[in-house]
């Protein structure tokens, strides 16, 4: 990972498409989308080298990209598991018992929130805010798919259904 990261042409094309959506001088606007694009091609996370390369390509400071990358939970700055589990922690879900669900998953996978399983199968995401499914709380998202009205049994089934 210490080698210099070179953004390949395919990704450059995609980033350029993002850039065109914004005014010319506002290259900071394309940070989020660009990071997501690169992350998608890099096993779900970005590295220091990627941030440096992207900052250089967009003509902005490295710290600007780093701020964005660390602020948003959808961008990972560490290697993570293949399947992303996000348990909503916000008030509606919390009142409906999301803490129990989260504790259960933690125990079941034997990891803490924010960690990945050693076999890199699961990544239990940290700091999940409202995922806009309050009517079905407690809820979680697994690989961007919503599962609502969770019970411990339901969680078992969902997780077992994942390879």
């Amino acid at each position: 990972m210490n080698q210099k990261y070179v953004i390949n042409d395919e990704i450059i094309n995609q980033i350029d498409r993002v850039k065109r959506k914004f005014p010319e001088m506002e290259s900071k606007s394309s940070i989020i989308e660009s990071l997501l694009i690169i992350q998608h091609h890099n096993q779900g996370f970005v590295t220091k080298e990627i941030i440096q390369a992207l900052a250089k390509y967009l003509g902005i400071k490295e710290i600007d990209v780093f701020e964005v990358a660390t602020f948003y939970t959808m961008i990972n700055i560490k290697p993570v598991g293949r399947n992303v589990i996000a348990v909503c922690n916000n008030i509606s879900c919390m009142l409906r018992g999301s803490d129990n669900i989260l504790n259960y998953i933690e125990k079941k996978l034997n990891i803490k929130v924010g960690e990945s399983t050693p076999d890199k199968k699961f990544y239990l995401k940290d700091e999940i805010e409202c995922l806009a499914a309050c009517n079905g709380g407690p809820m979680m998202q697994v690989n961007h798919k919503n599962y609502e009205n969770l019970t411990l049994n339901k969680v078992d089934k969902i997780l077992e259904g994942i390879k």
Binding site: K48, K61, E62, I63, D64, F66, E67, T70, F71, E127
Partner: peptide, 19 residues
């Protein structure tokens, strides 16, 4: 710009880019 606001909420801190 060398210092930035990194992370968010309770974990927010002022720091420079990695190393």
């Amino acid at each position: 710009k060398e210092l930035g606001l990194v992370n968010r909420g309770e974990h927010m801190e002022i720091r420079t880019f990695i190393e």
